[in-house]
Design a protein around this nucleic acid. Structure first.
Lengths: 188, 188
DNA sequence: GAGTCATCTTGTCACTGGCAAGATTGCTGC
DNA sequence: GCAGCAATCTTGCCAGTGACAAGATGACTC
């Protein structure tokens, strides 16, 4: 019985543990309602351990945003055939991965020029642009239509998450999202 | 020469001074990038003075949100005749009163059940609802159209403020907003 | 099994939020 | 014109936080 579950000096995967703790904390109390030391406690390490991996609090949020944009790009890619489906996927991502979404579009929280983050953000942007290109193929209004579609999905997601829509309380997100997105995307 | 501009014990209008300092600080570094003590220093009072008026940090942000919703309702009222104009006013408000807007739709930052705030929020909501009622008069799709219009304006404003739109760098907000809003509001 | 280096700990400092107790001053009634 | 009162603001304090420095531990390599 030599081997016990005594905590070893080296955690093994502290980086992931801190990120997971951060996601939980953001879910519970927003992107600023927690401390680095609290994440350290949740991961069972000393108060200064997270700093080694992330530098500071902004470093943690940068990593969260980067991972978020990667997952976001994945989600959008799976629906890239169809602009309407991309819109639904946009809203679904916001609701299903709320802690990521709450950080991603708030660049003052992290370091927007971080290379890994910038790459992920641009990948997501490219997928989004490609899918919206199918909305109004060749037309001169391309850019305007793209921004309108993006704004609609983004605004709906943001209003839903903030609880501004009374429907947030009990309604079904996807059902309402489909009806709303139809207004611009013009089909079912 | 008896009367000098020596700082008196009583500030005179500390509440407003702290609010103004908060608005400046939010403009500079977001709704969480500052401390109560910093606001006190800016207002030239002791570190505990703001607490008397606002209780704590959430109290300051509650007051900011309440004032924001009042100003927001005022802006929307001036454009209430016309749904399209309301949409433009929505975006204008977000851009012209950015620090307010950045707090208003983030209820985890303040106390959403504060009476003054709730009243202001409901006033703004009522103005918005009244104006959007003119969009699709009598139709069954009323609620959906309303949410779509709201989402479009809100999403555009949020994306613009976050810098997600490349156009944020140099373009003219109102021009682009008008073009984008037209997609749902369907006129110029 | 010695050297190397990433990982994690301990210790520390200035700063923050929030509370308690006291000082100052405007105001109200007389 | 002044006594008493209540609002306003101050000083002092404490636990908790972010950030840094220096040292301990152990995994990995040759």
């Amino acid at each position: 019985m030599g081997q016990t579950d005594l905590p070893s000096y080296h955690h093994g995967n502290l980086r992931r543990a801190v990120l997971d703790a951060a996601l939980e904390a953001i879910t519970a109390s927003g992107p600023s309602g927690w401390s680095l030391r609290e994440l350290a406690r949740r991961a069972g390490v000393s108060h200064a351990a997270p700093a080694h991996h992330f530098g500071d609090k902004a470093g943690v949020l940068t990593a969260v945003a980067a991972e978020g944009f990667e997952l976001f790009a994945d989600s959008l890619e799976r629906a890239a055939d169809d602009p309407f489906g991309s819109g639904v996927a946009y809203v679904r991502f916001a609701v299903d991965h709320r802690p990521y979404f709450e950080v991603m579009f708030r660049p003052e929280l992290y370091r927007p020029d971080d290379p890994a983050l910038a790459a992920a953000r641009e990948r997501a942007g490219a997928v989004l642009a490609a899918s919206s290109r199918k909305l109004s193929p060749g037309g001169a209004a391309d850019r305007t239509t793209t921004i309108a579609a993006w704004s609609l999905a983004h605004g709906f997601a943001d209003l839903w998450l903030s609880g501004a829509l009374p429907e947030s309380a009990d309604g079904d997100v996807e059902e309402l999202a489909r009806a709303v997105l139809q207004v611009v995307f013009g089909r079912d």
